[in-house]
Design a protein around this nucleic acid. Structure first.
Lengths: 237, 237
DNA sequence: ATTGCGAAAATTGTTGACACTTGTCCCGCT
DNA sequence: AGCGGGACAAGTGTCAACAATTTTCGCAAT
C-alpha cells in the first residue's frame, strides 16, 4: 500500500506529495538545529523510521541542496551544510543591501495599517525582553523582518531574503541569546518604526541597513576566536 | 546493469550522478528556449529517450523547482515556469539593487586586471555590434555582468544574481535582438568601465543600477501590449 | 454540432530490489 | 605495538514494476 488516503483533500491544489512533506520536515530539523551542520542525512534509516521509501527523501534533499541547506557528495550522500564565518559575513552583506533597498520601497508604499502591525510585533517583543524570554523574542524578531520584506510587495525580494535568513538561522540564534543583544536589537526596531512613520526614504534605508549590520556585529562578538582566525579585509564603508 | 563504468573518473570528486547531468541538461533546454514556458516535462519519455529511469529525472526537477525554473503540480508533473510581466519587473527591481550594491563593493576592491578583463569583453561586444551579431553580443553581455558580480568576491551576491538572471534569460533575449538596444547597452558598458577606473563608489553604484533599469526599460519597450495590461504603480524614483 | 459519460491510455507517485561504493573491523605480518 | 589488507557491513545509485491519478477519446443522447 502506498499513501493511505484516509481523508480526501478538500482543496485539490493543497494536496502535497510525500516528498514535499519530507522537505518541510528536514528543513525544520535543520533550522531547529536537531540536525547539526556536517551531519549526514541517512536516507535508509530516515525512510525506515517513517515507513516510506528513499525516493521522496532524495527528492526532498535535492531541493534542500538547491536551497543551500544541504550539501551533496557523490556516493556519500547528503550532509547538512556547514557555514564558515566567511559565509556568514557574505550573507549579512547581501542581507543589509536587501534591507536597504526594501527601505526605499517601503518609504513610498507602506501603509499605516502595516506600520501598526509592525508596531504590534514590536510591543510583543518589548514584553518578551522584559520577561527575559529570548526564544519568544527571537521568533517575533524573525516575523518582524519577514513582514518588512513582505510589505515591499516584491516577492523575489522577500523570497531571497527568506532564503538567506534560513541559512543564517542557527548562527543567529546564538547571538540573540545574550541579553544585551535583544535589548539593543529591540531599541533599533523602535527607531525603524519611527522613521517608517516619518517616511524619509534615505533615512529608512540607512536605518534598516544599519540594523542588519548591527545584528551582524552582535553575532560576531559572540565568536571572537573565529573572527580572529579570519584575516579578511572586510569593511562596512 | 546500472551505470556502465567504461572510464574510471580521474578525479573522484568531479564524478557526478546522473541526476546532476540531467539537471544541467534540463536547465539548458529551458534557458535555450527549447523547452518553452508552460511545457510539461514528460518524465517517462524523457527517461526513455536517454535510456535511464525516472528517479534521477525527478531529482533534477526538484532542484529546478527550488531554483524557480520549473513548477510542480501534484499528480500532474513538472512544468516549465511561466513568468508574467510582474515577475519580470520584480526581478529587475532586485537585480538593479544588487548591481548597485556590487558597484559600491567594486569601488574599493576591483583590480586593474579585472577592469582590463571587462574592457576586453567590452571590445569583443563592440565588434559583435559592428558585425551585427546579436547572439554573440548577448552571450558576451551575460559574461560581462556575471564577471562584475563575481569580482565582488561575495559568492552569495553572485549566486543570487545568477539565479535571477537565469530566470530572466528567455525574456531578455527578445529585447536585445533589436539593434538599437545592443548599441545603447554597449555604450552604457563603456560608461561603466570609465567610472570603474575612476573609482567613485556612488557613481559606480548609480551607473550599474541605471544600466540594469535601462535594460529593463528596453525589454518593456518590446512588449507594449503587456505593459498596457498591467495597471501597477511601478516607479523608479 | 455540442455536451456528457465512461472506459482505455498515458502519466505520475511510490516502492522494493539489486549493483556498486564507501567505511569498518578483524587478523596476520613485521 | 603498528601496519596493510581483505572480508564484511552499511549506505548510496539506479532501476523496473505496480498503484493511483489524470488525460484522452469515442460514443451516445440532446
Amino acid at each position: 500500500m502506498t499513501t493511505t488516503q484516509l481523508f480526501s483533500e478538500p482543496d485539490a491544489d493543497s494536496a502535497e506529495s510525500v516528498a514535499t512533506g519530507i522537505y518541510r520536515e528536514l528543513e525544520n530539523l535543520i533550522i531547529e538545529g536537531k540536525l547539526e551542520p556536517g551531519d549526514r542525512i541517512n536516507e535508509k534509516s530516515f525512510a525506515d523510521q517513517r515507513g516510506i521509501s528513499r525516493g521522496p527523501i532524495r527528492e526532498a534533499c535535492r531541493r534542500l541542496e538547491e536551497a543551500g541547506l544541504v550539501e551533496f557528495k557523490v556516493n556519500r550522500g547528503f550532509f547538512v551544510r556547514v557555514l564558515d564565518l566567511r559565509d556568514v559575513l557574505e550573507i549579512y552583506d547581501v542581507r543589509a543591501a536587501l534591507f536597504s533597498h526594501a527601505g526605499r520601497i517601503l518609504a513610498r508604499r507602506i501603509t499605516a495599517e502595516q506600520i501598526d502591525e509592525l508596531a504590534g510585533l514590536h510591543d510583543e517583543m518589548e514584553a518578551a525582553v522584559a520577561a527575559g524570554n529570548a526564544d519568544l523574542f527571537y521568533t517575533l524578531n524573525r516575523r518582524f523582518h519577514s513582514e518588512i520584506m513582505a510589505f515591499t510587495g516584491n516577492r523575489y525580494l522577500a523570497d531571497i531574503y527568506e532564503g538567506l535568513d534560513r541559512e543564517l538561522h542557527i548562527w543567529r540564534k546564538r547571538a540573540l541569546i545574550l541579553d544585551g543583544n535583544v535589548r539593543a536589537s529591540s531599541s533599533e526596531h523602535g527607531l525603524i518604526l519611527e522613521v517608517l512613520r516619518n517616511g524619509n526614504p534615505t533615512r529608512i534605508a540607512q536605518m534598516l541597513r544599519d540594523h542588519s549590520l548591527a545584528g551582524r556585529n552582535r553575532l560576531l562578538r559572540t565568536m571572537p576566536e573565529q573572527v580572529a582566525k579570519l584575516q579578511m579585509d572586510w569593511q562596512d564603508d
